[in-house]
Design a protein around this nucleic acid. Structure first.
Lengths: 214, 214
DNA sequence: TGACAAACCGACCGATCGTGCTTTTAATGG
DNA sequence: CCATTAAAAGCACGATCGGTCGGTTTGTCA
């Protein structure tokens, strides 16, 4: 019979599960280099030291492979960006952590270059109905809500003024970070992080209470 | 037969030049659908009603083709976004036109979906040394300077406060627009334009004179 | 340990990729 | 109107694409 495949068994990991993790890990590296659509089975197999068919046995299609990669990306994003923020105290501190962690995520201490979610969203933006696109849309909606709810938390704690539009806050928050991805990753500007932090400081200031008299 | 196609017929244009324009025009459409690297000679030839080799004769390599497409993109961008702004009066009005025109450009009144320059910049962001990348970097630096210089103009005309950091202004200006591309083109949010305009209004307000004492 | 399923491989498929080389067709100029 | 030249087609190449299939190795459990 099948071995007991209880969910989330990291220690008792079967060979196949281990290989699958290796594959997706390598795939992430490739995707960050040649883009999402540029990920090919052959190259990936070579990278993972497997035969094409051996690799293919783990995913019944390329689309499933792409979905797996996207899901892994989302998992890492949640782990490295969202969760540290949720662990921070509510209000402005949480938003600062959220910003800093995403900045780190984009800067890419690891081998990943830039925010692959953003990259992927541009690659799939007119692939209506494509499962990968739908998954990305959902993930990025979740992300937007994380920002907006954190902003609402800052209102509740009294850091932010009560009439702040939290969705508008999320829009500008993410805009600053998207621009950082562009200035840092593509334009290779050395002072991109300073610009981003300055913009964020400005956003925070004008979101705080009694920031402007009328 | 002289196919005087209603499509922009330039007077002293030889056959080859006309065909080249048709090719690049079709290529732009394809690029906006399948991305920049996804542009293939075969598909493009079919679209332009040419044989693969017939098309290939116009560009000695695929890289040259890509460069041609990028250049055409830059030309259109200059024509539809930058020049209308330069025709507007200096100061805040010019910046408003710059913003509106880029918003229209992203929204894509034509068949083009979203800002292909942004799309391309993400596809080539780790292709260091690639001619297409270098061309894009230069174009986007020019764009950044257009914004910054327009902001400087607004300082000179007295609309903006004298101590405004024009580069910081350009950063936030473009960030709002990049976010619009994401919210409109990918997330398909109906109120993306309102969000963008609100963010821009806020940016303008806090750039104006006597908005806040430091 | 033996059996059986999971994991993996090598060969192969048709299609398409970018790119040459040669030939034919069409435009142009004297 | 014809000769020259430019433009496009025809054809073929090696490589790679996603994907299939039959068989072999290897891990796991009774």
């Amino acid at each position: 019979m099948r071995p007991a495949e209880a969910k989330g068994d990291i220690k008792g990991e079967s060979k196949g599960e281990h290989t699958r993790r290796v594959i997706i890990s390598r795939a992430l590296g490739i995707v960050s280099e040649v883009g999402f659509e540029g990920l090919s089975i052959g190259t990936l197999a070579q990278e993972a030291k497997l035969s094409k068919s051996g690799l293919f046995a783990h995913f019944k299609s390329k689309e499933a492979l792409q979905l797996g990669v996207v899901q892994e990306l989302i998992n890492r994003y949640t782990l490295q960006v969202v969760q540290p923020a949720l662990a921070a105290p509510r209000g402005e501190p949480r938003l600062r952590v959220l910003f800093d962690k995403k900045l780190e995520w984009i800067t890419g201490a690891s081998e990943l270059r830039g925010c692959l979610l953003q990259k992927a969203s541009l690659e799939y933006d007119n692939r209506s109905g494509h499962p990968v696109r739908e998954r990305l849309v959902q993930a990025l909606q979740d992300w937007r809500e994380v920002i907006a709810r954190s902003a609402q938390g800052a209102i509740d704690t009294g850091h932010f003024r009560a009439d702040l539009d939290t969705d508008q806050f999320a829009y500008e928050f993410d805009g600053i970070l998207m621009m950082y991805q562009h200035r840092h990753g593509f334009m290779r500007e050395h002072d991109a992080a300073e610009r981003a932090r300055a913009a964020f400081a400005s956003l925070l200031e004008r979101s705080q209470r009694r920031s402007r008299p009328r």
